[in-house]
Design a binder for these strands. Structure first.
Lengths: 222, 222
DNA sequence: ACTCGCTAGATTGTTGACAGTTGTCAGTTA
DNA sequence: TAACTGACAACTGTCAACAATCTAGCGAGT
């Protein structure tokens, strides 16, 4: 079943669209880590030839979602717990920079938006709506990185987030972890509101490091 | 003139070799930032067809060395002074992480190697050998990042370094900047030798931030 | 029964050709 | 002389076919 929507949006390059689509499929879990990706199968799915698909795969390889083995094919990248922990470390430092930058230049509107996220998460916790909590949580992090006024930082950070999604030790948010996490969000946002770069930097780094601990503790149970 | 060496090393995939070669050409300055890259011309240079070349270009685009404009071609990425400064900021935080990690787990041998780099740079300064200084300087940074035991960190850091090479505001190391820089190296290495993560982290971040200042001050003169 | 080698099918790697788009330049007109 | 139009050339985007490589299954030999 060729996807017709791809033809309509042709204004922005076929390989790029295919790349986004493959990425969605991978992150959506249709292909599991370690799975082999068949080029022919993708041509049938997208109704195109192998050229653009190979280009899209090259790009995904560079962004760390797949691995290519010569004459064997491409495979969805498999992350070990060690690698996930390493990504968390790097992410902590990048996020700390984002917090510092935003603390320096945040506007009142931005602070208001940030506080909105935190109260929304408090409500989600009170209502026991885990899905909503996770969505707001993602939006908060995204917002902070996007408004730090450093596109290179944003792009590197998002790349790490995508790779982390390959590691489904399932952030189940067990026990009191949602409360703990949002308590840290509160500290982050108030540090930004106070325009205190050092405090914001420390709060953001501590938050990701705590998230790492929560993740690894959860995966050890499995 | 097709490059025959490519045939010999075929064990590791043609597009990958082409990618490395194009990267070398770009970083070597043969293509200047803003230049358009002609696919046909590359086919003549490498003696291959356009398929592998387009794949290599996709990969280079993902790593930030070139930009692709649909139906117009690929261009060597042009960095503004702002973007270079942003890269330095991210690099500072990544390097700080590298310093922290190495301070935790550095062996005596590694510390000895680090001290060797610093004394070699002292000698280069005394002898006025700028080229040698730059080489040792690069080797020191490389060594620290490579021995931090975090491959994700290393890969992100090296990606930034490559992008920075596109910004040739020429790190001329004017005035006393070599002395200043190596003084900072000394502090970094001693913090690692003392196995003091916080001190090492601070020293590494400060070093990159100082380098950023030196670079931007130099480019303002031009 | 188990291992080794061979054959057949499938898949990746690469190529050359065709279609569509962009940019240029000569020629024309006000 | 300057601006506009149209055709030509160059280049990118895409495709289908060919060549090389790998995987799986089967049969023979130990």
């Amino acid at each position: 079943m060729p996807t017709p929507a791809i033809e309509l949006l042709k204004s922005r390059s076929l390989p790029m669209l295919i790349e986004e689509e493959i990425q969605r499929v991978i992150l959506g879990g249709e292909y599991a880590p370690g799975d082999r990706i068949n080029e022919k199968e993708l041509t049938l799915r997208f109704g195109t030839s192998r050229g653009p698909i190979r280009e899209a795969l090259r790009s995904l390889e560079a962004s760390g979602l797949i691995e290519q083995i010569p004459n064997r094919g491409v495979f969805v990248r498999r992350l070990t717990a060690d690698q996930a922990a390493q990504i968390y470390e790097v992410r902590a430092f990048l996020f700390a920079l984002a917090g510092r930058l935003l603390a320096i230049r945040a506007t009142d509107d931005e602070v208001a938006t940030l506080r909105g996220f935190v109260t929304a998460m408090d409500e989600a916790i009170a209502a026991g709506e885990t899905e909503r909590y996770l969505a707001e949580n993602f939006a908060l992090h995204e917002f902070i990185v996007a408004h730090a006024a450093n596109p290179i930082l944003a792009s590197q950070y998002l790349s790490l987030i995508k790779q982390l999604q390959l590691y489904r030790a399932r952030n189940l948010m067990v026990g009191r972890s949602m409360q703990e996490s949002n308590h840290e969000h509160h500290e982050m946002v108030e540090a930004i509101a106070a325009h205190d770069p050092d405090r914001a930097q420390a709060a953001h780094m501590a938050h990701v490091m705590s998230a790492k601990q929560r993740l690894l503790a959860g995966s050890n149970l499995a």
